[in-house]
Amino acid sequence: MFAISRIKLLAAKEGAEAITQENKKINLLVTEEISRQIDGAKLFAAVNEYGKAIGIGTSGQKIKLAVYLDRLGGKSFLHVLEALLKQLPYTRKEDEAIVK
C-alpha cells in the first residue's frame, strides 16, 4: 500500500497524467506539456535496460509508456514503474544555447 502511495506522489511530481491497468500491462500517460520536453533518444536509453518489458508510444500528443507485466522476468512492476518515473526528469531536452 505504501509503495502505491509513493508512486502516486512521484507520478504527480514528474508529470504523469494517468496510470492505468489494461489486461497484462500498466500504462503510464505523460502530460502533453512534459511530453514536449522529453528527448526521445534519452527516453529510449532510460527504458532500454528493461528490453521488451517496456513499450513506448503516444496517445495524441502525449507519451505513453506500457509496462508489460508478463515480460518483467520476476521484477516487481511497482519497482519498475517507480524507476521509470524517477528517470523521467533525466529524459528532458537540453536547453538550446542562445546565439547572439
Rank of each mutant, 00 (worst) to 15 (best):
residue 55 G to M: 07
residue 55 G to I: 02
residue 55 G to L: 02
residue 55 G to K: 10
residue 56 I to M: 07
residue 56 I to P: 05
residue 56 I to Y: 02
residue 57 G to D: 03
residue 58 T to F: 15
residue 58 T to Q: 15
residue 58 T to C: 07
residue 59 S to T: 09
residue 59 S to F: 00
residue 60 G to V: 01
residue 61 Q to M: 07
residue 61 Q to T: 03
residue 61 Q to E: 06
residue 62 K to M: 09
residue 62 K to D: 07
residue 62 K to C: 10
residue 62 K to Y: 02
residue 63 I to Q: 09
residue 65 L to W: 04
residue 65 L to F: 10
residue 65 L to V: 11
residue 65 L to T: 10
residue 66 A to R: 05
residue 66 A to N: 05
residue 66 A to I: 04
residue 67 V to T: 06
residue 67 V to F: 06
residue 68 Y to W: 01
residue 69 L to F: 10
residue 69 L to H: 03
residue 69 L to N: 08
residue 70 D to A: 09
residue 70 D to S: 10
residue 70 D to P: 03
residue 71 R to N: 04
residue 71 R to A: 06
residue 72 L to M: 07
residue 72 L to Q: 02
residue 72 L to C: 05
residue 72 L to T: 01
residue 73 G to L: 12
residue 73 G to Y: 14
residue 74 G to A: 14
residue 74 G to E: 04
residue 74 G to F: 15
residue 75 K to Y: 07
residue 75 K to I: 04
residue 75 K to C: 01
residue 76 S to H: 05
residue 76 S to K: 01
residue 76 S to V: 08
residue 76 S to Q: 04
residue 76 S to E: 02
residue 76 S to G: 07
residue 77 F to K: 08
residue 77 F to R: 08
residue 77 F to A: 12
residue 78 L to T: 08
residue 78 L to F: 15
residue 78 L to D: 14
residue 79 H to F: 15
residue 79 H to P: 03
residue 80 V to Q: 01
residue 80 V to I: 05
residue 80 V to E: 00
residue 81 L to E: 13
residue 81 L to W: 11
residue 82 E to P: 00
residue 82 E to V: 01
residue 82 E to C: 07
residue 82 E to M: 11
residue 82 E to I: 05
residue 83 A to I: 03
residue 83 A to R: 07
residue 83 A to S: 12
residue 84 L to W: 07
residue 84 L to N: 00
residue 86 K to T: 12
residue 86 K to E: 14
residue 86 K to V: 09
residue 87 Q to N: 12
residue 87 Q to L: 04
residue 88 L to M: 15
residue 88 L to T: 15
residue 89 P to Y: 01
residue 89 P to M: 07
residue 89 P to E: 03
residue 89 P to K: 07
residue 90 Y to S: 14
residue 90 Y to M: 13
residue 90 Y to V: 03
residue 90 Y to E: 14
residue 90 Y to H: 13
residue 90 Y to L: 12
residue 90 Y to Q: 14
